[in-house]
Amino acid sequence: MISSQPSLLRSIALQMRVLHALLMREVITRYGRQNLGVLWVFVEPMIFTGGVTALWTAVGMNHGSSIPIVAFAVTGYSSVLLWRNCAGLSIGAIQSNIALLHHRNVRVIDVILVRCVIEIAGVAASFSILSTLFIFLGWMTYPIDPLQVVFGFLMLAWFGTALALTIAAATAFSHVVEKLWAPATYLLFPLAGAAFMADWLPPKFREVVLWLPMVHGVEILREGFFGNVVRTHYDVGYMASICMLLTLFGLYLVREAGLRIEAK
């Protein structure tokens, strides 16, 4: 008799196995085997970040600050891609993997999480590669506090994952969510802290913008990168609380979504 009592260790092992299986499947189906294949995971965000960096440099966007424009664009765009891609790509996660739920080990949460893992890994790789390249070329300086950069990155990744769980699960309740997400990202983007430092804003407006948790993440990351050259405004406690609440809400929605899904 196989013990039907699931021990925590066995559950973790099972979870890892399923995530690994989904990861391999997702990477091949999304990027294929032709040309760059799996490398697209980070080439795609790299082109995006690199393109914006080039554009901003070309128009010589003057933001009245001592921060080099290249470093500013790289830190800003990587931050945006982190939460935007996690949420954006997880929207279709349930619908396109619904048949997999016939494999009883594969649950709704797995198909969402795996997309987040791919996005986070992709952005992390593109961020590191671009930074290394630009530092090597002398366009960027080495981060003052690499650990804080990592911390800011992880906070944004957490926010992105929590957002992805919530939004992806919400699509199981209403398709309106998918329709609203695209305009929402466009509206959120200019406010999300990629193209400005909170310090440059008028204090009244800054207060409003700092309601957005991702702004705190970008500020943490940039403080790690630039040190005291910039004045930053963030509250780790606030961002962590929002992420925690969103995670719990997302997990709740994912469970509810699992109950109402119709797997044809």
Binding site: A21, R25, G32, A99, H102, H103, N105
Partner: peptide, 27 residues
């Protein structure tokens, strides 16, 4: 899972990929 259920195949994957996927899921 339902016998001979092919709905879980991803059409971009090869037959071998699909075998690998199922094997990974079940360890």
């Amino acid at each position: 899972w339902p016998l001979a259920f092919g709905g879980a195949f991803h059409t971009h994957l090869t037959g071998l990929d699909n075998l690998k996927f199922v094997c990974r899921v079940y360890g």
